[in-house]
Design a protein around this nucleic acid. Structure first.
Lengths: 219, 219
DNA sequence: CTCCGGAATTGGTCTGACAACTTTGAGGCT
DNA sequence: AGCCTCAAAGTTGTCAGACCAATTCCGGAG
């Protein structure tokens, strides 16, 4: 809230840094803005908490998301209790269904091309290895992006991330949700056909399988 | 994340502090956890950014929301201005439609009674004053609760709160979304009839009017 | 009892130093 | 030339001590 934060926000905004780029080192920002290093560090921690920036020890601080002084940050806190996985899935269902419908209404040619390329990669990996975790994620992320509303991508990717770390799903069954595989192409075709209702339905089909497999797993 | 943060998180978790209570002063935590003050401060800035804690110079650092090690934090960055409101509404639509459908599937007699009482209050206030902001909110919150999934209530109430404070909607038109009024009873009846699809549709009807009024307002 | 003022408390910032880690590049080897 | 090794430089992470600014607390004056 201090003026220092606003100052650095403008400094970042004016220098056109792209996500992935490295911020100036703390000691340099220190002189640039005429504030102490601790102040710089506290502001960086602030943005780190908000997911705007990532610090790598020994390397530097990197921009994750572009911000301007006008962007609002609304941190949401969610308590995942005992039924956390299933409750999170219900939330995810609401978001994902809406994102698919919006994508079906708004996706342009470039969006469709991106989605299809991810789909093809996913199908290839799936045929070869029997599962395709990261490729499946990339496919869904491209759909979120095609919704034209960046909040869906933010929420859903952060939810997936949090769930993965909280529940430590490293040793998940290799064929987890594998039965949902054929529905992915149908979902893509519904979006390509600009049919929101079909996109909704196909997304529900995919998540129904995920739900069954979660129930199997937590038993 | 650094072990220091985890240490302080547990320290706070074990000492049962209620929201509004004051955390130990930084210099005390410093000795308590055997870490430097700057480390303490950076962790506090982290939680400050996440809305968990608020610092008042000269007074102390106060707990705003109870956190546990299982709490997930989903910071959102949203463009302020006209797109922000509509983007938030699209997210809200996804969540609210799913919550209504779940409520229709799961609501018990007690839930229905609670929802109907909120509906009656809302209708009474609406007939009297022509609008019913807080009462409308109470009605919807009772539906979120009836979904049986507390995450919907957490997310949606926080989103409403953030939108209200950040967009400063104090001088909103008194008849904002007033046309959605009759749909509220229909939504309740759909939930009482345990008809998820109708509940979905009625929720969409309400939010469509909200969308129109937002578009009117930001012009 | 109220009101006032100074002392104690507390968060905010600056400075300097060192540790841990990463990146870089020069030099030597094959 | 190409590759490897390793030391030096650069960067974040942490600690320590000091001072400033705002608030709170408490005892004395009225």
């Amino acid at each position: 809230m201090s003026g220092a934060m606003q100052a650095i926000a403008e400094y970042i905004g004016h220098s056109n840094l792209q996500p992935g780029d490295c911020l100036p080192p703390e000691r340099e920002l220190m002189g640039e803005l005429s504030v102490g290093r601790s102040t710089i560090r506290e502001v960086i921690r602030h943005w780190q908490a908000l997911g705007v920036v990532e610090s790598r020890r020994g390397s530097g601080t990197y921009l994750l998301r572009r911000i301007s002084p006008e962007t609002m940050h609304l941190p949401l806190a969610v308590d995942s209790g005992q039924n956390g996985l299933l409750q999170m899935l219900e939330v995810r269902r609401g978001l994902e269904v809406e994102a698919s419908a919006l994508a079906a209404m708004r996706a342009g040619a470039a969006d469709l091309e991106r989605i299809e390329s991810k789909l093809l990669i996913m199908e290839a990996v799936h045929r070869e290895k029997g599962c395709a975790g990261p490729e499946d994620l990339a496919f869904h992320l491209s759909i979120y992006d095609a919704s034209g509303n960046p909040i869906f991508n933010q929420l859903l990717s952060q939810m997936r991330e949090s769930v993965q770390t909280l529940f430590g799903m490293s040793r998940v069954r290799v064929d987890f949700a594998a039965r949902s595989f054929p529905f992915h192409r149908e979902l893509f075709e519904a979006i390509a056909a600009k049919d929101p209702d079909a996109a909704r339905f196909k997304t529900l089909s995919i998540l129904a399988i995920v739900e069954e497999d979660i129930k199997d797993m937590i038993r």
